[in-house]
């Protein structure tokens, strides 16, 4: 019964074991020829009990923004507004931890698609670029052949689908077709696809376009689990996979030497309780030689200008004078509301 939604089972654990990874810096990174970075971050589920999905997506948003991707190149889709939910005891904040260490809502969150705008249609239109003609540029994925795109999806899913908004779902085939259309239109250089849902790896199994590295929080048949509950708000506060991802990303800086292999190993089974799936057959480079900033940071090429043009004559453009003045001969104005001019003499 593949079209039935199977809700995930959420297990809360009050403790978690911190782990560490042996950091080894590869001698030479494989050079990437991307010229810009984009991020598409999607939270597909509504309602207060899905608080953790908003915390998930904002955790990633916080990280990519901190690592340098500007808001104009982040498409953030959040289907519910937890920060302003009346049930939120701490308005305008979203925490990813019961200890309230990091307010992932931050000071400036720019949500591009919100509420009921987060639909399968808008998501596929965004990816394929087939947006309605009056869509503002901030809601478009204006990538080109030199763009590295980070796609992060979170929500409730099942074998072969991801549920949007309790009412519809995107299937793995649709997603694979959308990515193929992006590839055919030369709209990306490389894609790093992350998905944190139940049976998450089913979403990338049908991909067939090149240059995609995909990772998922759980394999088919497994549930992705939440990390811990916050008794102050009464719901689970973040999912396990994203919790460890954020913990990892918090230690990454713009000049970090960490590689994608380290990222892919970020949540071992002992921590996640589900097996993190990775698909690397479509990806041409060796993940152990790809710096994490190729996808999470915004490494923009900078070219120093040394060939200033020494202009001889100061140019004067033939001005096209635009007369802004009105054609009223006599200018009229309002009198002040309180007739101060009448009492001016007495006050002096």
């Amino acid at each position: 019964m593949w079209w039935l939604h199977i809700g995930c089972i959420f297990i809360s654990l009050s403790t978690f074991t911190p782990y560490s990874l042996g950091v080894e810096i590869p001698e030479k990174f494989q050079k990437s020829n991307h010229t810009n970075n984009w991020a598409v971050l999607v939270d597909t589920s509504r309602f207060w009990f899905n608080y953790r999905h908003v915390a998930n997506v904002l955790s990633i948003y916080r990280s990519v923004k901190r690592l340098g991707i500007p808001d104009s190149q982040i498409i953030l889709m959040i289907s519910d507004d937890m920060a302003c939910n009346p049930r939120n005891p701490r308005p305008a904040t979203i925490f990813n931890n019961a200890h309230e260490q990091i307010n992932v809502y931050g000071d400036d969150v720019e949500v591009d698609y919100r509420g009921y705008e987060v639909s399968v249609e808008n998501f596929i239109r965004l990816l394929t670029g087939r947006v309605p003609p009056d869509t503002p540029r901030s809601k478009q994925l204006l990538t080109d052949e030199g763009s590295n795109i980070l796609i992060y999806l979170t929500g409730h899913g099942g074998d072969g689908f991801l549920k949007f908004q309790d009412s519809e779902e995107v299937t793995s085939q649709e997603l694979a077709d959308a990515l193929e259309q992006m590839w055919q239109k030369r709209r990306y250089n490389e894609i790093f696809f992350i998905i944190d849902t139940c049976q998450a790896s089913s979403m990338y199994e049908k991909f067939y376009s090149p240059n995609i590295l995909a990772t998922a929080s759980s394999l088919v048949g497994e549930d992705s689990l939440s990390h811990h509950v916050d008794s102050a708000i009464g719901v689970y506060i973040i999912d396990r996979y994203t919790y460890y991802v954020l913990e990892f990303l918090e230690n990454v800086h713009t000049n970090s030497q960490k590689t994608m292999t380290e990222f892919l190993a970020v949540c071992p089974k002992s921590a996640c309780l589900s097996t993190v799936g990775v698909r690397r057959d479509l990806f041409k480079r060796d993940p152990s030689k790809v710096p994490i900033t190729d996808f999470f940071g915004s490494v923009r090429p900078v070219v120093i200008t040394t060939n200033t043009i020494d202009i001889m004559d100061i140019p004067k453009r033939k001005k096209t004078e635009i007369e802004n003045r009105t054609k009223v001969l006599e200018k009229r104005k309002y009198l002040p509301q309180f007739p101060m001019h009448l009492v001016q003499g007495s006050t002096q």
């Binding site: 010229t35 810009n36 080109d144 030199g146 923009r300 090429p301 900078v302 070219v303 120093i304 200008t305 040394t306 200033t308 020494d310």
Partner: peptide, 24 residues
Amino acid sequence: QIYYDDDKPVQATMQAFMSPKWGG
């Protein structure tokens, strides 16, 4: 003064840089 990665200063009348497809 802008310095290159090898710690040499940029010799130019104006200190300036550009970024492809973005501007200067």
